[in-house]
Simulated scan of single mutants.
Amino acid sequence: MTTALTLTTGQDQDGAPVLVAAGEIDMSNAERFTAALSEAITDRREPLVVDLTAVEYLDSAGLAALFHHADRIEVVTGPLLSPLLAVSGLADLTTVRTR
């Protein structure tokens, strides 16, 4: 049984745009995740903070969406996904912070 994906946009305390994802990101909802990333990325100078701390599963379709926007995002993740983001090479292309 998969956990539904929820996506929430907002701003952090400094006013930077934030996209918070919770649940599972896989091929069944990666298109929605990609669209949310594209919509949340602004023309402002600061990158979009993508908070994945509540994501329980991330497959290659979700990774592809992150790679596509690597030059405009920063990723915040928990210890579950941190190794995946490092091994995939995403951590070499963008800032990845582990909470």
Rank of each mutant, 00 (worst) to 15 (best):
H69S: 09
T6M: 11
A40N: 04
A4Y: 05
G62A: 07
A64L: 13
P17V: 00
I73D: 00
L66N: 02
G15V: 01
R72E: 01
R72D: 00
D92T: 12
E56I: 05
I73M: 02
L58S: 07
R99E: 14
T2Q: 13
R72G: 00
I73S: 01
L52W: 05
A4S: 12
A36T: 08
D12P: 03
A54C: 04
S60D: 07
L63D: 04
L90A: 07
L58F: 09
S38E: 15
T9M: 06
G78T: 11
L7I: 06
V76L: 10
H68G: 14
D12F: 05
P17G: 01
A70L: 03
Q11I: 01
V50Y: 08
P17C: 00
L19M: 01
N29A: 06
R32N: 07
P83C: 02
L66W: 04
G15R: 04
P47T: 03
V76S: 02
A21M: 03
L66K: 03
A21Q: 04
P79M: 08
A61H: 11
I41T: 09
N29P: 05
E31Q: 14
A21G: 08
P79C: 07
T94D: 00
T53V: 12
T53M: 08
S38V: 13
T34P: 02
D12T: 04
R97W: 00
T6Q: 15
A70G: 02
A36S: 12
A65T: 09
T2K: 15
L81K: 11
L7R: 05
H68R: 15
S28K: 09
L85Y: 09
R44S: 13
P17Q: 00
S82V: 03
P79L: 10
L93S: 12
V87M: 15
V18N: 00
A64C: 09
M27Y: 14
V20M: 08
Y57W: 14
R99Y: 11
E31L: 15
G23E: 01
Q13P: 09
L63R: 06
L48N: 05
M27R: 14
A65K: 08
H68V: 08
P79R: 13
Q11T: 10
R72L: 01
T42Q: 11
D59T: 10
I41Y: 03
A30K: 04
H69R: 13
E24D: 14
L93C: 12
D59A: 10
L84F: 11
S88G: 08
T94N: 00
R99F: 07
Q13A: 12
A61T: 10
A4H: 11
Y57S: 09
L48H: 07
S88V: 11
A54V: 00
S60Q: 09
T53I: 07
L5Y: 11
A91D: 15
V75W: 00
T94M: 00
V76Y: 03
A91Y: 12
R32I: 11
A86T: 15
L93G: 05
L19K: 01
G10L: 02
L58I: 08
S88I: 12
V55K: 05
A61W: 05
A70N: 08
D71G: 10
G15F: 06
D12G: 02
T53R: 15
L52M: 09
E24G: 02
T77G: 05
L85Q: 07
T8Q: 14
A64K: 15
A40Y: 06
